[in-house]
Amino acid sequence: MDTWSIGKHTFTSRLLVGTGKYPDFSTMQRALVASGAEVVTVAVRRLDLSKTGEASLLQWIPKGMKLLPNTAACFTADEAIRTARLGRELEMGDLVKLEVIGDRRTLFPDVEGLVEAAKVLVKEGFTVLPYTNDDPVTAKKLEDAGCAAVMPLGAPIGSGLGIRNPYNLRIIMETVKVPVLVDAGVGTASDAAVAMELGAVAVLMNTAIAEARDPVLMAEAMRAGVEAGRKAHLAGRIPTKLHASASSPMTGLIGT
């Protein structure tokens, strides 16, 4: 069985999915099932005290899926640490997708704040999965800080631009020993396949599925893309060549 692990958790599916931006909870639920994901990300926000009787997100997440609370929209290490602690109290688990954002327009990470928050949360017993830049030096610092994985972006969150810097991702995979997950930027199934072909352990995405015209069908496509990319990575692609290499024999031709 081709499994992978983070901390004490072992998974089979290599597609992790978000729960934001869906047109409604029912569509989200069907897309989550279609994706085959075992891990789903969730955000921590103030409860709307005027709507305490409303259906909660959790009722729509299929049983058995592991929740991965995030610290999205935190702009300082302190905010991220507080949010992670609240997420742990809600989920009663140890996993956190750590985000410390440095810029509102690009949502690029603030890597100084990220490393600082990671150190604190690792000490508190969290299994930290940091969303980071495609920067090998930062990835190494996060590994040294005790993070259980690193999650470099393929492109800005929600941009759908695909894998913008495959070379840096490869260098990150060479540099760190912890699992490398590509998080953010995927637009379509081929992007997910590219990330996996490069050697990513898994891919995390939200917008590409949730905002597709048919989120359920896109979830299926992403699942297939991730599986295809993983298999291609294991199978070992051929080297690229400038000139042709015939697939059919060049001998035994008629009329010669």
Binding site: K21, V42, V44, N206
Partner: peptide, 25 residues
């Protein structure tokens, strides 16, 4: 933590945050 809900009292001027999970990526 939940085990302290019945023992911990809130005082005047305290700042309280009540949060829940919402959809996110």
């Amino acid at each position: 933590t939940k085990d302290r809900y019945e023992s911990q009292r809130i005082g005047p001027g305290d700042s309280i945050e009540i949060v829940a999970f919402v959809g996110g990526g």
